Simulated scan of single mutants.
Amino acid sequence: MNQKEHILPADLFMDLERSGPMPLYFQIAQRIEKAIMGGDLPAGSRLENEVALGERLGLSRPTIRRAIQELVDKGLLVRRRGIGTQVVHGQVTRRVELTSLFDDLANSSQKPSTQLLVLQEVPADTNIAEKLAVAEGDPTLHLRRVRLADDVPVAVLENWLPAEFLDVTSDELTAYGLYQVLRARGVTMRVAKQRIGARKATTDEARLLEIDRSSALLTMDRTAYDNSGRAVEFGHHCYRPDLYSFEVTLVDK
Rank of each mutant, 00 (worst) to 15 (best):
V191N: 12
A184K: 10
R195S: 15
H236T: 09
R66Y: 08
G75R: 04
F234H: 11
L143S: 04
M220L: 13
L76H: 03
D11Y: 13
G197N: 07
L116W: 01
R147P: 01
K193W: 11
A67R: 03
E158D: 15
S100Y: 06
S245L: 09
Q91P: 11
D212S: 14
L105M: 03
M14Q: 14
D138E: 15
V51L: 10
G54R: 02
L8A: 06
V51P: 00
D15E: 10
A198P: 00
L101K: 07
Q120W: 06
V187C: 07
K34E: 09
M220T: 07
T188V: 14
I68E: 02
L59C: 03
P42T: 10
Q3F: 11
A149S: 11
G197D: 06
P241S: 01
E233W: 04
H89V: 11
M189K: 08
E97H: 07
S170V: 05
G82S: 11
G229C: 03
W160K: 10
N107M: 12
E97A: 11
G197P: 04
M220P: 00
T63P: 02
M22D: 02
D104P: 01
L250N: 13
L250F: 13
D204I: 14
D212C: 11
Y176V: 00
A184W: 04
R199H: 12
Q194P: 05
I32C: 06
V251G: 02
D171T: 05
T249L: 12
P9M: 10
N159I: 00
A135I: 02
A163I: 10
E210F: 14
Y239I: 02
A231Y: 03
V51H: 09
A175Q: 11
V78K: 15
I196F: 13
E48R: 13
A175I: 01
R61F: 05
V146R: 01
Q91T: 12
N227V: 01
I211G: 07
L76I: 04
R213W: 13
E136P: 00
L208I: 09
R183I: 07
E172W: 07
V187F: 08
T99R: 00
H237P: 05
G58H: 06
V152G: 07
F102I: 13
A29W: 00
L24K: 03
P123V: 12
Q69H: 09
E33G: 03
R46Y: 02
M37Q: 15
A175F: 02
Q110A: 15
S19Q: 14
